[in-house]
Structures are given as structure tokens and as C-alpha cells.
Nucleic acid binder design. Structure first.
Length: 292
RNA sequence: GGGUCUAUAGCCAAGUGGCUAAGGCAAGUGACUGCAACUCACUGAUGCGUUGGUUCAAAUCCGACUAGGCCCU
């Protein structure tokens, strides 16, 4: 039995993924599933560069505006939700098109990673964070090294977040991350993913990023941030979003507007660079070279 | 024209006589399966504006020159 085809369009910010995905959707009778860790949040529109209703051209988009900025989201939730969308689109006889820049999310789909049911133990996480912040991260590192020396080969002594995760997994399941990773992949991949990664000359991309940031400011990014701050109280993850932190900093009067804009541009470039590194790693990928 | 201060990597900058010229940002490369727009690692000056000198030893002290800032005329 042939696996159904799912198209994936990935690439760094401002490389034109969204537009390409829409064009493609029109041609192949497709619908689009976003793979963006920030576009899942409601009310964060300008800063996350969501496509407008008009730009969608009646192509249905999934996984955008699904949760409130006050909530927390995760890869495992994304995997589950996105696969639901894939099934739904396929059942209509249409082609699912995954489009986005969050490599972690895309990988969970294309490598068919199964996540076990797990609620994050916030208390334990906070406890470990406190230890780490008291300058005792090395203790956590050593503990993690004892539990899972294999996984620790890839984790630096300073990588707080990943060291803590090793300990979390062990406390929760009694298993090592290495074991869990193996189990998570034993089911194989359900769909025939065709992955396209947009590749673009670095300078051109940086230029596009600068223009996009200027445009975001013009479109009212600052107002958007103000509105979000007024509407919601907590932002466990959402305010990590590029641009948002910097605007908040500006609103607090710590930096001038010009400095803030420069910061956002710089951060966006750094982000794009990380994305490029991430996607480069994927084998069996079709590189799309864009020169404009 | 006179005076004065400054000159270190793409940018900001520590060093004020003696190990191999701090650090930050940018840039590049890399890791990353439950916060991922996260978290983290690695990489850069054979040389300190130019040039002469003092010294066993100079980015560091002295002179000249060049460039820039400030003040005076």
C-alpha cells in the first residue's frame, strides 16, 4: 500500500515559504499546515509574519491561532495536532502541505517521532532551574552524565535546558533519553514526506529580513505588543518570539526606537542562520534555490 | 594658524614597560526529540594609525608625520 504524499516547505524566515506554499496549494489542490512555533499563538500577527486572509487566497490554513499566548505548547502537542490536520486534509482528497520554519516541529513529522503521554512536571523543572541558577549546574551535569552518558556526549556542560531535560525524563519514566529516543522512532514514518527547503543567498536573505522588520514596525508591531500586554498576563513561551522581547524592552524605555529596530533585525538574522543550519542537516531534501 | 585629546579585528573596547594582546557585538561553522523565534559549543589581530628613537624587552615611554574630535584665533 502506498503511503500518501505530504509536501513540506521549509526554510529560513523571510525566504518566501508562505507565498510559495499558497501557490503550490492552488496547483495541487492542497491545504496548508503551518509549522511555526509562534504562529500558533493568537493575537501575535504582525511580529510572527502571519499571512493575511487575503494572502491566503481561500486556501485553508491549519495550526495558526490555535492557542492563547498564556498557554504553553510543545513538539509533542504539535505532532499530534498536525497529524490530525494531515488526516483531515487527506480525507477530503486534498494534498497536505506543511509550511514553516520550526525545524523541531517539522522533524517530529518527517521522522515520525512518537511522543509518549507526558505532562511536564513544572515543579521539578523549577526546582532544577533553581539549582542551576545557584551556580550548581555542574552538579546537574554530573548527575545527567551518570544517568545517560550516551546522550550527554552531545550536550555541553552549559546547556542548562538540555541537561535538565535528561533528568526530567529519568525522573518521570525511569528511562534514559537515549532509550526513549530509540523507542520514539520504532514505528516508522506514516506518510511519504517530500521535503523542499528554500535556499537563498545570505546577503539577499538578510536584505529581505531588514525590509520585513521595517515593514512590521510600519504595520504597527509596537501597538500589537501593547495590546497583547494589556490582554494577557502570563507569557510562558510566547514572548520569546522575536521582536516581542525587543519591543517590550523599548516600551520600558531601556532603548531608543532605532536601537530596538536594529536589535530586531539582528536577532532575526541570527534566527535565520540557526534555521539554515537546522535544515541543511536534513538529507533526502530538495533544495530550492531562490535568487529573488 | 595656535592649543589639546584620541588612534588596538567589520563595530564597541580592556590593556599604561616583561608569559602566546581580555571581553562584548557582528560574521562564519556546529549541536539540539517534550520551552525551539529555545538552549548551547567552536572559530578571528605574527599584530595595536605611519615612521624614527630610548630599552635586554614597547600597544604601553619619547619625537615626527597622518587622520579624527574638542577648544582658541
Amino acid at each position: 500500500m502506498d503511503k500518501p504524499t505530504v509536501i513540506v516547505i521549509a526554510g529560513p524566515t523571510a525566504s518566501g515559504k508562505s507565498k510559495l506554499a499558497i501557490e503550490l496549494a492552488k496547483k495541487v489542490n492542497g491545504e496548508i499546515i503551518s509549522a511555526d512555533s509562534m504562529q500558533i499563538y493568537k493575537d501575535m500577527n504582525i511580529g510572527t509574519a502571519k499571512v493575511s486572509k487575503e494572502e491566503m487566497q481561500d486556501i485553508k490554513h491549519y495550526m495558526i491561532d490555535v492557542i492563547s499566548p498564556e498557554e504553553r505548547y510543545s513538539v509533542s502537542a504539535y505532532k499530534k495536532d498536525a497529524e490530525k490536520c494531515i488526516k483531515e486534509i487527506l480525507s477530503k482528497g486534498k494534498t497536505p502541505i506543511i509550511c514553516g520554519g520550526t525545524g523541531l516541529y517539522i522533524n517530529s513529522l518527517i521522522y515520525g517521532i512518537e511522543f509518549r503521554e507526558e505532562k511536564i512536571d513544572e515543579e521539578y523543572r523549577n526546582e532544577l532551574n533553581k539549582i542551576a541558577e545557584n551556580g550548581r549546574l555542574d552538579e546537574l551535569y554530573n548527575k545527567a552524565l551518570e544517568i545517560d552518558p550516551e546522550a550527554m556526549k552531545k550536550i555541553s556542560k552549559n546547556d542548562k535546558k538540555r541537561i535538565i531535560r535528561i533528568l526530567e525524563i529519568y525522573k518521570k519514566t525511569g528511562k534514559t533519553k537515549t532509550q526513549q529516543d530509540i523507542e520514539s522512532r520504532k514505528n516508522g514514518v506514516e506518510y511519504n514526506y517530500k521535503v523542499f527547503v528554500i535556499n537563498m543567498d545570505r546577503e539577499l536573505l538578510y536584505d529581505r529580513i531588514n525590509k520585513r522588520v521595517d515593514q512590521m514596525i510600519n504595520e504597527g508591531l509596537i501597538e500589537e505588543v501593547k495590546a497583547i500586554l494589556k490582554k494577557y498576563k502570563k507569557f510562558p513561551t510566547a514572548m520569546q518570539g522575536l521582536g516581542y522581547k525587543e519591543v517590550v524592552n523599548y516600551l520600558q524605555g531601556n532603548v531608543s526606537k532605532e536601537e530596538m529596530v536594529e536589535e530586531v533585525k539582528m536577532e532575526t538574522r541570527r534566527y535565520a542562520k540557526r534555521q539554515i543550519t537546522w535544515f541543511k542537516k536534513n538529507k533526502e531534501t530538495y533544495l530550492l534555490n531562490r535568487t529573488r
